[in-house]
Design a protein around this nucleic acid. Sequence first.
DNA 1: TTGTACGCGTTATCAA
DNA 2: TTGATAACGCGTACAA
Lengths: 356, 356
Amino acid sequence: MTAIDPDEPLARRVTLDDVGRRAGVSRATASRSLSDDPRISVATRAAVKQAATDLHYVPNIAARSLRAQRTKILGLLLANLSDPVHGQIAAAFEQEAWRSGYQVLFAAGLQEVELERKALRVFTEHATEGVAMVSSVMSPAEAQTRVRPGRLMVGQPDHERVGRYRGPLTPGVMMTDDASGVDQVVDHLVGLGFRDIAYVGSGTRASSTVHREAVGVALERHGISVNLDRFPSPDDAWRRCDEIAPLIAADLPEALVCYEDVQALALMDSLRRVGVRTPDDVAIVGFDGILFAEISSPRLTTVRTPLAELGQLIAASLIEAISTGALPDARVLPVELVVRESAQPARSVVASSANG
Amino acid sequence: MTAIDPDEPLARRVTLDDVGRRAGVSRATASRSLSDDPRISVATRAAVKQAATDLHYVPNIAARSLRAQRTKILGLLLANLSDPVHGQIAAAFEQEAWRSGYQVLFAAGLQEVELERKALRVFTEHATEGVAMVSSVMSPAEAQTRVRPGRLMVGQPDHERVGRYRGPLTPGVMMTDDASGVDQVVDHLVGLGFRDIAYVGSGTRASSTVHREAVGVALERHGISVNLDRFPSPDDAWRRCDEIAPLIAADLPEALVCYEDVQALALMDSLRRVGVRTPDDVAIVGFDGILFAEISSPRLTTVRTPLAELGQLIAASLIEAISTGALPDARVLPVELVVRESAQPARSVVASSANG
DNA sequence: TTGTACGCGTTATCAA
DNA sequence: TTGATAACGCGTACAA
């Protein structure tokens, strides 16, 4: 029944002193009682706890952090809070952190290095015990100069610069095996009888280059040569499919490998607007395995990447690194081809099997 | 070039004392210099700033908070980090907070009151200056007993208990005008010539009841009576459309009003699996206006709710409430019917206009 | 078994 | 113009 002063700057004012006073003990005893210190008699402990409850005592984390040199806060920097792939990662990360009693400070980098730098600084100000960066544009080298390298986790679910990590993998890096995914996709397409296969990327920076290159390598392996820049790849390609679709329609390949599901889905729609049907006129495959790829029409053939697992793994590894002091080895999570409707056997195959 | 001790528990150890020492002044002067206190000579200020830069000084927020009684942290509690509607809200909230120099502590309530209580407690521990709850299941009344009512913002984008706020609106509540949206949808459907209209909800709790009731009212206005519970409405309906679709197919109405876009999209897919085509065999409308409603096939007729605007508004209002001490009046954001492909004129209308 | 007293890093008050 | 010092709330070494 305590009245709350609306002008009080902070949300709480009852301190350990108050609790101790009410229970008739010192604040040291109060503190120890609340942490169930066995040296305090059971009776006292109970009394203190009762007092704390009565007073609605809530500990002040700032004071505790200052004293204990531990904040129980993790920083998570990612490109965006609102898109399906990062949303899944963020949710899994938050949940895993929560399970271990950590809070998460989020920041959106929006693909701008300056914002990322500020975010990292904010994390440092808040003395986060660990930091995870997902899909950031800042180089890992720079990141390591800005936060303690031993407490830094890097995730690359969006296929950026995975290629650069070939060779000995830097500890603390978690990624999905996109090159393998692209391989599987191309194999699948070739197996379906397609030869005229094009790639539609998103972003000319590091972003989609791994996919693009992997497509090239895979096709080459099948003895197919191809112009990987046949169609433009603006930075926010999925927003601009209406511009790209006519170009594709005017020079229609048999199959289209897209950088990501969102783009594939948007492209299917834009192509439909200009009279090109999927999979009848062109085969389309995506990448990521988001929910909407399962329920689109046609349902999208894609590569499922373990997004939630990645988020959870990053959080768990970071927490482990904090407690053990050692960064876990890098890991590459396997991805999986999911065959659905958007890529059907090529006409030539159907025809020849009809002939045969 | 300072070596970093890997065993140091916290990320930073250079303090104002260090900076002051290096600049040859006291820590008080160092503090004042960094905040550009005009009483400090320009030369000293510059020297201190230089020293701070050299030493890579970063202030300790915990200490500052303790002393200044301000944390510059906001708490955001929402149902889920990973679904498209909450993701958009979270992103907008975070961005607006960032613009005002606030950090955001996120928590996912997952529709469980116990989790929500814990989250609120954590926010209190961290002395967040304000708290926003979006789509929470906890009653606003209880929430007000757990955090300072003057610093609590409630958002209801997912249409929960909007009906309860009829009459004088509680300050600090922001919502979308879903009843109006449902009205518009039903009008549209009736205008298209449909009479046999059914509602497909999600959750029997507060969740989708506003929509359900609004559908009933709107149909009644048109002199159409209907059984609103014609089809089941499990809590996670959108995940279980494969179970519901056969029931719908066996008792096919002319038009289906869905609780939300995700459900509408999933349902279109499930219906397709059992041979029911949209919009040829049945008209379907959604609610929310998520991205994928724009690029689905058929593109979904829906009600666009201003999700990003809601997130931004909640953050801005909360921050204003913190500085002015007064909770802003409740607001109901208008929604907008977006006509696309998933609901076409009814056969009867087409036929009669062909006759006429 | 419990209390006293110090220090974590800041900012603000009071002196100089 | 600057410095010494107190205080924010907590945990803990040391004392009793």
